[in-house]
Amino acid sequence: MQRSRGSWRRGRWTLLLIALICGAPIALSYFTYYVIKPKGGTTSYGTLIEPQRPIPEALTVTGDDGRAVPLASLRGRWLMISVDGGACDEACATKLYFMRQVRATQGAERERVVTVWLRTDNAAVPDKIKGAYPDTRMLRAGAPALAQWLPATDTTKDTDHIYLVDPNGNLMMRFPAQADPSKIKQDVTKLLKWSSIG
């Protein structure tokens, strides 16, 4: 009789322990939501552009060969885009450097990413910049058309940001002015990992 009572008590404690283990995640989630109250619903560093903005079909770009093509012709891979004048000041060069480094750190996935510099004037590109970024597509585009497509903030211009366009040609993310390249890398790595397109 004593052994039966001991087994019954052990069974009750075991059942209680299982209930606690199963209920702990639920209790923790309620505590997190109602007490800690996390802000926002995204873990990305860049700002998601909602709704997505497709590359305008009428937006054309011109290469150094003088040939004008639709920017939409670059669809098919992930595009990291920077906008600046051709003289490329220090802030411009920093963005180009960040884009190159973020792409390079993607390892075997880097071929899925194309870095694009959209120049808004006819100023000659310094030889130093051309030599440092041979893999960056350097194309000319009209400043008004770019400003209409690429959203800035109330306190910034499109030339302050790096933008990300998905392989379907949708503008989907804007990185902050004076961005942290390691955080841009994290976003791009996650997108390449979870996306099968491009």
Rank of each mutant, 00 (worst) to 15 (best):
A72V: 03
Q101V: 11
D89V: 07
A68L: 05
I26Y: 10
D64G: 10
A27L: 10
L96E: 00
Y33T: 14
A27C: 06
A72H: 01
Q52D: 12
S4L: 15
I26T: 12
S7K: 15
R77N: 08
I26E: 13
L20Y: 06
A19Q: 04
L15P: 06
S4W: 14
T94C: 09
R100D: 09
T60I: 06
A91V: 11
T60H: 05
A93D: 11
W13K: 10
G66V: 04
R75I: 04
D89S: 13
R67T: 06
Y33D: 15
G63Y: 02
V102M: 01
R3H: 15
G66A: 01
A68T: 09
G76A: 05
R5H: 12
R67A: 09
L96T: 04
I36V: 10
G76R: 04
L20Q: 09
Q2I: 12
G6H: 15
Y45K: 03
G85M: 07
R5W: 10
L28M: 11
L79K: 00
R67E: 06
E57P: 03
G85Q: 06
R67V: 09
A19D: 06
V69Q: 05
Q101S: 13
A19P: 02
Q2R: 14
C22A: 14
K39S: 12
A91Q: 13
R53E: 06
I18F: 07
W78A: 00
D65C: 04
L15A: 13
E50S: 11
A93E: 09
I21W: 07
G6E: 14
T94P: 07
A87K: 12
I81C: 03
L71N: 00
D84K: 07
F31A: 12
P70I: 05
L17H: 10
P51A: 02
E57C: 04
L16R: 07
A27V: 08
S29I: 14
L28Y: 11
L15E: 07
W13M: 09
L16H: 11
A19V: 06
T42A: 10
G46N: 00
I81R: 00
A24Q: 06
A87I: 13
V102E: 00
P70R: 03
G6I: 14
A72S: 07
A91I: 10
G86C: 01
P54I: 03
I21V: 09
L71Q: 01
E90M: 14
R67F: 04
R10F: 12
V102K: 00
R9K: 14
P51R: 03
G86P: 02
W8Y: 13
R3C: 13
P51V: 02
G63P: 01
I49Y: 06
R10N: 09
E90K: 08
I81L: 05
R75H: 08
M1N: 11
A58D: 10
T42R: 10
Y33G: 12
R12E: 12
